[in-house]
Lab assay of single mutants.
Amino acid sequence: TGEEYIAVGDFTAQQVGDLTFKKGEILLAIEKKPDGWWIAKDAKGNEGLVPRTYLEPYS
């Protein structure tokens, strides 16, 4: 299990392996990579890379 984050903006996948999401979606951070791209999972179970700058902790 990971930590929940809320998307603060829309993001469209730029390449294969990225995860597209919309502002307000809750994402589960699976792995926090030091380069600023995290592996996350959305509510539908889709998994991919997301930019850290689009996420804020969800409580």
Rank of each mutant, 00 (worst) to 15 (best):
T1W: 13
T1F: 14
T1I: 14
E3Q: 13
E3W: 11
E3G: 10
E3T: 10
E4C: 15
E4R: 14
E4M: 15
E4L: 15
E4D: 06
E4N: 10
Y5K: 00
Y5L: 04
Y5R: 02
Y5A: 01
I6A: 04
I6K: 07
I6C: 07
I6D: 00
I6V: 10
I6Y: 07
I6F: 06
A7E: 00
A7I: 02
A7R: 00
V8H: 05
G9N: 15
D10L: 00
D10V: 02
D10Q: 04
D10F: 03
F11I: 04
F11V: 05
T12F: 12
T12K: 10
T12Y: 13
T12M: 11
T12N: 11
T12L: 10
A13N: 04
A13E: 04
A13S: 10
A13P: 06
Q14C: 12
Q15D: 10
Q15V: 10
V16W: 11
V16S: 12
V16I: 13
V16F: 11
V16G: 09
G17L: 04
G17M: 05
G17W: 05
D18V: 13
D18L: 11
D18M: 15
L19R: 00
L19I: 05
T20N: 08
T20P: 10
T20D: 07
F21K: 01
F21V: 09
F21D: 01
K22G: 06
K22L: 09
K23D: 04
E25Q: 11
I26T: 05
I26G: 02
L27C: 02
L27T: 00
L27S: 01
L28W: 13
L28E: 08
L28N: 07
L28P: 01
L28H: 09
A29F: 07
A29I: 15
A29L: 15
I30H: 03
I30Y: 05
I30W: 05
I30N: 02
E31F: 11
E31P: 03
K33W: 09
K33F: 13
K33E: 05
P34Y: 09
P34L: 11
P34W: 09
P34A: 14
P34T: 12
P34D: 14
P34R: 09
D35S: 08
D35P: 01
D35Y: 05
G36W: 03
G36S: 04
W37P: 03
W37Q: 06
W37T: 06
W37H: 06
W38N: 00
W38R: 00
W38E: 01
W38D: 01
I39G: 03
I39T: 08
I39M: 11
A40T: 04
A40V: 15
A40W: 03
K41W: 05
K41L: 10
K41F: 05
K41P: 01
D42M: 01
D42Q: 02
D42F: 00
D42L: 02
D42S: 05
D42N: 14
A43R: 12
A43H: 10
A43Q: 12
K44L: 13
K44D: 11
G45D: 05
G45R: 02
G45Q: 04
N46A: 08
N46R: 10
E47S: 11
E47P: 04
E47A: 09
E47M: 15
G48I: 02
G48A: 02
G48S: 00
G48D: 00
L49T: 13
L49P: 04
L49I: 09
L49S: 10
L49C: 12
V50T: 03
V50W: 00
P51V: 03
P51S: 07
P51C: 14
R52L: 10
R52N: 12
R52T: 10
R52A: 15
R52C: 15
R52S: 15
T53D: 15
T53H: 14
T53A: 15
Y54W: 08
Y54C: 15
L55G: 00
L55P: 02
L55V: 05
L55R: 00
E56V: 11
E56T: 08
E56L: 09
P57D: 06
P57Q: 08
P57R: 08
Y58P: 05
Y58W: 12
Y58G: 06
Y58K: 08
Y58R: 08
S59E: 14
S59A: 13
S59T: 14
S59D: 14
